[in-house]
Design a protein around this nucleic acid. Sequence first.
DNA 1: CCAAAAGTGTTAAAGCTACACCCATGC
DNA 2: GCATGGGTGTAGCTTTAACACTTTTGG
Lengths: 243, 243
Amino acid sequence: MAGNSEQKASQIDWAAFMPGLALDAVIFGYHNGQLKILLLEYKNTPLFALPGGFIQQDEDLNNAAKRVLHERTALSNIYLEQFYVFGDLSRHNASQLKQIIVANGHFIDDSHWLLQRFISVGYYALIDFTKAIPTPDAISDSCQWFDITNLPPVMLEDHQEIIRKALETLQTDLDRKLIGFNLLPETFTMGDLQGLYETILGKPLLRPAFQRKMLSLGILERIAKKQTGMAHKAPYLYKFIGG
Amino acid sequence: MAGNSEQKASQIDWAAFMPGLALDAVIFGYHNGQLKILLLEYKNTPLFALPGGFIQQDEDLNNAAKRVLHERTALSNIYLEQFYVFGDLSRHNASQLKQIIVANGHFIDDSHWLLQRFISVGYYALIDFTKAIPTPDAISDSCQWFDITNLPPVMLEDHQEIIRKALETLQTDLDRKLIGFNLLPETFTMGDLQGLYETILGKPLLRPAFQRKMLSLGILERIAKKQTGMAHKAPYLYKFIGG
DNA sequence: CCAAAAGTGTTAAAGCTACACCCATGC
DNA sequence: GCATGGGTGTAGCTTTAACACTTTTGG
C-alpha cells in the first residue's frame, strides 16, 4: 500500500477509490547477476515500502495493477500475476501510516478508512531492468532497485512478508511456466539465462543439462552467431519466440 | 457473493463488514466417482450461486473464509486455498442482486454498497463428502451438491467463471501438492484414490504406475489387510500420514 | 600456448510407459 | 472355472545427472 496519486493528499478525492482495499506490487528486475525489486522511500521517514495503490471505483482490479506499474516504471505490457491476498488484521499499523501522512505535511481524520484496516492484493511483475524508469510517487523521495538479498531492515507493515511470498511464488512458477525471459532484454546469451535461473532458484545448475533443456523447449531462437569482445569463445545470442 | 448472515437483511449491521469486498468459496467433494461442488439456490428466484460472504471489519480474511465454510458444511479444519481475486467491473450485475434482495422481501437503497461493484476473493476447499452437512443460508432455499459436469445453466454473476478457474487450479495443484486425500474419508483403497485423480484430471491413468507413484511418496500407510464383500480380491485400505 | 568460457558428446542412473502376469473371491 | 478387480514384475523407452571433450579468443 502506498500513495498512488501525484496530487497532495488534501486534494485527493478519496471517494473515487474502493475503501479498505489496496494492491502491492513486487516488481522484479535482473541486473549484474542480482535479482532486484523496486522500493519506495517515504519522505521524511526511514520507511521503505513496495509500490502500491488503490483501486478506483470504475477500474478493473488488474488494470489498477497495470496502472501502478506504469506509473512506477513507465512500462506497459508487463508480465504480471496475482499471487496472494494479505488480509490479516495484524498487518494493520495505523501509527506507521499516520507517520507517513504527517511527514508529508497532511492531516487526515483518525476515522478515515486510510488509517483503518486494509486488505491488499499482492502482485508480482517481471520486467526488463534496462528498460524501466523508476519513478517515485508524490509522497516518496525515491524509487530504487534493491538486491533481494540486501533489503532495508525497516519496511512498511508486512511488506517483508509480501516480498518473501512473492519470491517463493516466482521460484515455483519459474519452471512451471516459461516466464524467465521477461526479466531479460530481447536478446541474451545462454549464460545470462542460466545465471538468472541460478539466482532466482538460489542454487547452481549444470550447464549442459540447462542448455539442452532450454533448447528442447523449442522456445528459443538462435539469432546472431557471435557477440564481441571477451577472452574466450563468443556465445550465441538467443531470443524468446512466443509459442 | 452470497448472504452470509442468519438475520433478515433489514436487521443486518452492514457497517460491520468491509464494503465492496466479498469472498466466494468453491467447495469440492467427491462421491460415487463424481467431483461435486456446493451451490445455494436463492429463494424465489431461479438463481444458483456459490457459497460466499463478507469480511467483518474485525476479522482476518482467511478466518472469514473458514467461517463461511463452517456455516455451510458444519466442518472445521478444512483444506482451503485462495486461488484468484475477481475484480473486473464487468462482473457487476446490480439488477441480479436487487432481484435477490427483493425476492427475499427486503428493501435496500440503490446507493448502498451491496448494489455497487464488488471485488471477490476466490477460495477453493476440499472436504470429505461423507462428513459435510450442507446448510443453506438465510436467503437461500437449499444448499446442495452438484456434479461439476452438470451445473445449473443460470448462475449468479461470474460464478461459472469462478468455478472454471477453481477447477483449473485444483488440477494443477493436484500433483504439485499432496492434497487429494482431503476429498476422501480417513481410509480408502488405491482404486478410490485413482478414481479421484482420474475424475479431477479428466483422463484415465495406468494402475501400476499410479500405485507405485503414490506408494513411493511415502505418505500412505497400509492399514487393514482386506476389505469385504465383492466378487474379486479384496483391496487394501490406506490412510494418509502427514509427512 | 594457455586460460577462460561456450558449446557438444557420451555414459550411467533414474523415472516413466505399457503390458504381462499372478492373486483372491463370488458366481 | 471363469470373470472381475487388486496388486506385482519386467522390458523398453525417455529423461536427467555427471563428466569429458572440443571450440574460440585474448593475452
